[in-house]
Design a protein around this nucleic acid. Sequence first.
DNA 1: GTCTATATGGCGATAGAC
DNA 2: GTCTATCGCCATATAGAC
Lengths: 206, 206
Amino acid sequence: MSEIKKDNTEEKILNAAQAVFIQKGMDGSRMQEIADHAGINKALVHYYFRTKQKLYEAIFRKVFKQIFPKIETFILSDQPIEEKLTIFIENYIDVLLKNPYLPTFILKEINRDPEFLASVLKSQGIHPNQIFEMFEREMEDGKIRKMDPRELLVNLLSLSIFPFAAKPLMQLMLFENDKKAYKQFLQNRKTTVQEFVLNSILLKDK
Amino acid sequence: MSEIKKDNTEEKILNAAQAVFIQKGMDGSRMQEIADHAGINKALVHYYFRTKQKLYEAIFRKVFKQIFPKIETFILSDQPIEEKLTIFIENYIDVLLKNPYLPTFILKEINRDPEFLASVLKSQGIHPNQIFEMFEREMEDGKIRKMDPRELLVNLLSLSIFPFAAKPLMQLMLFENDKKAYKQFLQNRKTTVQEFVLNSILLKDK
DNA sequence: GTCTATATGGCGATAGAC
DNA sequence: GTCTATCGCCATATAGAC
C-alpha cells in the first residue's frame, strides 16, 4: 500500500470508537473522546469516516457480528438436545462475560433505529428458522415438551442476556454492590440456567 | 390556591416529559420537544423545573413507582406458590403491556446513573429479602426445587421483561414485523412463562 | 495523512417585558 | 405565570497549512 499508516490509524479509530460507543451509546459519545482514546486528532476521525453517524454504523456492524457467531455450529451438530442447549448457554454467557457492555449497547440500538438494525440482520443472513426446525424435531421425537419454539428461543435469550443488561441494578439489590460476587453469580448461571431450562422442557424416558 | 393555572401547567409538563423521556431517554430528549408536546413555551419548563436534570429525575421517580407496586401484595398473600407466581407473572406482564416503553427506559437508566437509581430504590423501600425468604420457605416445605432464590427472582424478571426490551428485534426476526402477532405473543407469555417456570421448579407430590 | 483553527448550528438556561 | 429574545457553551463538521 502507498499510505503506510492508513490501516493502522483506521484500526485505532475503530477500536477507540467501539470502546466509547459501547459504553456511552450513540447520543452519549463525543467525537473528541473517541479521538483522545485513539491518541489522534478529532479532525482525523472525520477524515476517515466523515460523520459520526457513519462511524457509529460501522461500529455497530462490527460489534453485531461478535454476538451471532456460534449459533450455526450449535444447531448443525448432531449431539443430543441437552448437549446442544448446554453448549449454547455456555457459549452465550461466556461471550457476554468477556463483553459485558454488549447487551446494553445492542438493546439501545434495537430501540434507536430498527430500520438500520433490520438491514444489518439481513446482511448477516440470520435465519432463526433453522433453530425452530431443530426444536420441532426434538419435540416430535419426544425429547422435549411440546411448545412454541419461538417461546423456547426467547426464554433462552432472556435468561442469558437480561442479567447482563440489568447488571448495576441486580448487583446493587441482590449483592449489596459486590462486583466480584455478581460476576461469580453470572459465571454460575452457565450451569443454573441450563438446569432451569432442562428441568422445564426435558421429558424423562418412561 | 392563588395561582390557578399552576397545577394544570405543571401536570402538562410532567405528562409531556414522561412521554418524551420514556421514548428517547435523557440524552436523546430536547427541552424544546417537551415544551411543544405540552403546548407551552420552553422557558416555562425551566421556570417549573429549573434544569433538564431535575425534570428527568422527577419523571424517573414517577415512572419507577409504576413498575414496583404490587410486589408486596404478592408476597404477603398466603396462597400456594403456584398461585403466587402466576399472579406475579400476570401482573408484571400486564403492566408492561400497558407501558411497553418502560423496560427500555428503566434499562437505560440502570446503566446511566446507578447512584441516582440506588437513591430511588432506597426511598421506595424495596427489599427483595422478603421475596427470598418466601422462596426459601417454599423450598424447605418441599414445594419447589432447591435453588438460590436470587436465581429464581432473576429468572422471573428476565422472562417477563426481556421480550419487551428487545421488542423491535424479536418482532422482526420471529414475526416478520407483524405488530399484532407480536403483541399476541406477549399476551400469551402470561401463561407460557408461568408453565415454563412451574415445570422447572415445582416438585410433584409423590 | 495529520494537524490547528474556525465555521456552523443546536441546545440548555436566563433576562426581562407583560 | 407566561412569553420573546438572547446568551453562552459545546459538539459536529470543515478549511487550510504542513
